[in-house]
Design a binder for these strands. Structure first.
Lengths: 331, 331
DNA sequence: TTGTAAGCGTTATCAT
DNA sequence: ATGATAACGCTTACAA
């Protein structure tokens, strides 16, 4: 029972005005009398007329959508990092009447999927895009968008990206954690993360004042389960470990859950610090110490910058959102 | 440095073919020789030509976007219920080459915002929409979409919606929790939730075999903090309480965190059961018992049904995703 | 199998 | 302030 929708032509005829006038009533820029506009808007509500957005987009070659591209570390668990970010992005976009599209891509992106993403970008569906840095695909998408002049903001650190970048300093964050462990008397550090993040490891080792080679590394993913599983490895191969920095909070929670089952006390036996400081961290038991990235603020900053770019600003200087070590009970 | 993009006309001229042929090469339905298609696609990649999606949408009056409308219970914390759902929706939409748009609306929706959502729907930006039931606005959006023939799927229970509905039985879920509490010797139940959900309360009371009036109700939100705060009220006004069903897992976690600080033992002093069974539940400490709604499966089912609707099917019978009580350590 | 040309529903330019 | 009309870039009969 699809209802035939009114076109601007039909609607204009109905009111006895021209299509141009109707268009002006909706576009809020053209010169039109307040009286006429009011009348048109009122009648539009009654008759259910709304400008067709595709026609408008085509005509103005604009769009009211923003696309967020992010690597999907797991297709079983939601990504809480992204969830916090989206909160900030959405909050900001709403102010500009924009809508958020989300486009996760698998970590191991096939050429086919990459092409699909490129198609999306090149087809001009979005007014701008936000890309989460940290995978090869991110970089490819960045270049695709750059190549066709699509406004884009990168969140996180991407090599050679000098502008339009909102970032956090992982080196610094991990440094803070390392220094804290050292200062609180820990001696046998480990780093848990699915992928080697040189900046985190580098900062961690520097904060701990220990060569990188002496810091245990383990892990093969970024989810709860990955953190949970790692305990076995640590217990078997590095039983002396007394403090652990995790690549994210979720892994830390998984790790702690496993430790609890084994009777390993947190923080007495092993001190744990997570990363990102997602909301559940403070309500965890023990309340999770974490490096706060202020993700929601980060999302807001990214959306705001993108909006500027779309508005015509060019080459926004990179914006650093300071990270902060939040000590709770787990360390 | 916006790069001038090729139009189909220019591109066709470049190859010495007609625009129709180019169009057919991309649309994968029209009659065209495999050879020609291959050539066109290859050259398109090289020259960076991609069909303009707005023009295509206008011409076919289709769209490759799906919009998810959901009430935003908090603008400070991410909504984990939605996050799990989105995982399933996205996973399914990806198979159909569709992209997900998200459009949260405030719980207390102003007429202005409601109109904005209606505009979105009426403008035909999306090929279909998914609406999370449970607020007045959900209902209004449902009616708006129904009125203009926009394919839509409702997730959850909405009065008088007989078709195109994917739902879970809150009455049953709460019943299971109530019965479990009763059977495990609890005698003083409470229900924690920001809004009175009659079905949950009803089921809970029935499962517990106690009149609704004798079940304590408390709460004023759905976030961690709300759960956290409620402990004070329970402790002060209903100290005899020995078991609690929470409206969602996040509240349960907040509540447990507060209990821990007070030295109240979970589950010995108070048994707690959450609702939704989001991923963190099993890694919480104590591992959280919860009513599983199988949210990711629910999301998949919704997206799949919507895809059918868009394909032309009408009046899909409602689909019930069974809920299940998962007992872990907190009860 | 391929080409021609008429839409698709707006907005924007130019008149009036 | 309003009207007529040419884009906007694609798809799809219809012709060849």
């Amino acid at each position: 029972m699809t209802v035939k929708k009114l076109t601007i032509k039909e609607f204009a005829a109905l009111l006895g005005v021209s299509t141009a006038t109707v268009s002006r009533a909706f576009s809020s820029k053209g010169r039109i009398s307040a009286e006429t506009r009011r009348r048109i808007i009122t009648r539009a509500k009654e008759s259910g007329y709304r400008p067709n957005i595709h026609a408008r987009n085509l005509s103005t070659s604009a769009s009211s959508a923003i696309t967020l591209y992010y690597p999907e570390f797991s297709n079983e668990e939601p990504d809480y990092f992204i969830a916090e970010l989206m909160l900030g992005i959405n909050r900001t976009l709403a102010k500009y009447g924009k809508i958020l599209q989300i486009s996760p891509f698998p970590l191991e992106t096939s050429e086919v999927i990459l092409d699909l993403c490129r198609d999306q970008i090149l087809s001009g569906a979005a007014a701008g895009i936000i890309i989460i840095a940290g995978s090869k695909t991110s970089r490819e998408l960045y270049e695709c968008a750059a190549g066709c002049g699509m406004p884009e903001i990168v969140i996180g650190h991407m090599r050679e990206v000098r502008y339009n970048n909102v970032w956090f300093d992982n080196r610094r964050g991990a440094f803070l954690a390392g220094r804290y462990f050292r200062e609180t008397g820990r001696r046998h550090p480990a780093y848990l993360g699915g992928v080697l993040d040189r900046r985190k490891q580098n900062g961690f080792s520097e904060g701990f004042q220990l060569p990188e080679s002496e810091i245990i590394k383990a892990g093969s993913g970024f989810g709860f389960r990955d953190g949970y599983r790692i305990l076995d490895i640590i217990a078997a191969e590095h039983p002396e470990t007394d403090c652990i920095l995790c690549a994210n909070d979720v892994m830390a929670m998984g790790f702690i859950a496993a430790a609890r089952e084994r009777g390993i006390r947190i923080p007495q036996d092993i001190a744990v610090i997570g990363y990102d400081d997602i909301h559940p961290a403070r309500y965890y038991s023990p309340a999770l110490s974490s490096v706060s990235l202020q993700l929601t603020r980060l999302g807001e900053a990214a959306a705001l910058s993108l909006e500027r770019l779309i508005g015509g600003t060019t080459d926004l200087p990179p914006e650093l959102i300071e990270c902060e070590l939040i000590i709770r009970e787990s360390s």
